[in-house]
Simulated scan of single mutants.
Amino acid sequence: MAGLIISGLLALGVVVLLFMVIRIVPQREIYVVERLGKYQSSMDAGLHFLMPFIDRVAYKHSQKEIVRDVPRQSCITKDNIEVSIDGVMYLQVVDPKAASYGVDDYVMAAQQLAQTTLRSVIGKIDLDKTFEERGEINMEVVRAVDEAAQPWGVKVLRYEVADINLPVSIKDAMEKQVRAERERRAVVAESEGERQAAINRSEGDRQAAINRSEGEKQEMINISEGEKMKQINEAEGRAQQIELIATATGEGLRQVAAAVKEDGGQEAVSLRIAEQYVTAFEKVAKESTTMLLPQGLSDIGGTVASLQKVLKTVEKTPA
């Protein structure tokens, strides 16, 4: 019985000893080992052996990204407006030894430093810029906290402003400002539309006037060209008429002259002259109540003889 108890105690001691000697480190974790209270080594993922009663695992660190909320705090902007801001910070342990012995709680230290840095950054900008320049604010906080966290063996990867709360009065004022700005833009847009419409109308009227003037100009040109062609055609017609009349008259005179030279031509001419003479005085007598008669009107034969004498003179005259 005593032997069984001793055997059990020995087995328990072996199990405890193995537990103290063997350490299995999970993936993405690092164990910091101290020997007699002094830093010995950092164990990566895998199987490791410790010296019992001398070595011990003092700290355990995760190499994953650590996400921590930065508590909400009040900040004063450059234009003296109080805002309430909270954020999210992403950390990662890069030096297990420094993270173990550099600071008591690196997460708390990073959070406090992020808060103080955020208050400093917000105090340098106006309220409107806090909404427009969130990216710049985040970069400033990351730069300041990461520089301060280097001795702690911690890398600050990112910082994001989660929410910005404003006082009710400031919200109302900003809403009024936004409404006023929208109304102003609407008025400007409407006026721009009216101005553009007026410009378009004036351009259309100007183009229509130009088109009308061009049409009237072309119409006048066409009319003048038509008048010109008409006058040319009339002139050419009159010229041709005159030429034809002259040709016909000349031909008639030549025929008359030829007829006069023939036998009995003189008597025919005399008879024709006498007939025309009498017809002319008859016409004058019908058209006028008063008539002056030439001397020797009764002597028609003498008159005809005189006209024949003139005709002969013309015939003898060389052409």
Rank of each mutant, 00 (worst) to 15 (best):
residue 127 L to Q: 05
residue 110 A to W: 10
residue 109 A to C: 02
residue 105 D to Q: 07
residue 76 I to S: 13
residue 81 I to N: 10
residue 129 K to V: 05
residue 146 D to K: 14
residue 53 F to M: 09
residue 148 A to I: 14
residue 126 D to L: 13
residue 113 L to S: 09
residue 71 P to L: 03
residue 135 G to D: 11
residue 115 Q to W: 07
residue 64 K to I: 02
residue 134 R to F: 04
residue 96 P to Q: 06
residue 74 S to T: 14
residue 52 P to L: 12
residue 110 A to Y: 10
residue 36 L to C: 06
residue 145 V to E: 02
residue 60 K to W: 04
residue 155 K to G: 00
residue 40 Q to L: 15
residue 73 Q to R: 11
residue 104 D to N: 13
residue 87 G to D: 00
residue 63 Q to K: 13
residue 150 Q to G: 12
residue 78 K to H: 14
residue 116 T to E: 11
residue 116 T to Q: 10
residue 75 C to S: 13
residue 123 G to K: 12
residue 35 R to S: 09
residue 157 L to M: 07
residue 50 L to R: 11
residue 31 Y to F: 14
residue 108 M to D: 15
residue 135 G to H: 04
residue 42 S to D: 11
residue 146 D to A: 12
residue 107 V to L: 02
residue 75 C to K: 09
residue 132 E to F: 08
residue 135 G to L: 04
residue 155 K to M: 08
residue 51 M to K: 15
residue 21 V to R: 10
residue 67 V to Q: 11
residue 83 V to G: 01
residue 28 R to W: 12
residue 76 I to Q: 12
residue 39 Y to M: 10
residue 57 V to G: 03
residue 116 T to A: 10
residue 21 V to C: 09
residue 158 R to M: 06
residue 121 V to Y: 00
residue 50 L to I: 01
residue 35 R to Y: 03
residue 87 G to Q: 01
residue 43 M to Y: 15
residue 30 I to P: 08
residue 69 D to G: 13
residue 43 M to V: 07
residue 43 M to D: 09
residue 131 F to M: 06
residue 41 S to G: 04
residue 57 V to T: 09
residue 72 R to H: 00
residue 140 E to P: 06
residue 155 K to F: 06
residue 24 I to W: 11
residue 92 Q to G: 03
residue 128 D to H: 15
residue 117 T to K: 05
residue 28 R to F: 13
residue 59 Y to R: 01
residue 130 T to F: 06
residue 26 P to R: 09
residue 31 Y to A: 06
residue 116 T to C: 05
residue 95 D to H: 00
residue 86 D to G: 09
residue 66 I to P: 00
residue 113 L to W: 02
residue 146 D to F: 10
residue 105 D to S: 12
residue 65 E to P: 00
residue 119 R to F: 06
residue 44 D to Y: 09
residue 132 E to I: 12
residue 50 L to D: 03
residue 152 W to H: 07
residue 65 E to N: 03
residue 149 A to E: 07
residue 128 D to K: 15
residue 104 D to Y: 13
residue 53 F to A: 11
residue 90 Y to G: 02
residue 109 A to V: 03
residue 49 F to R: 08
residue 97 K to L: 08
residue 131 F to G: 03
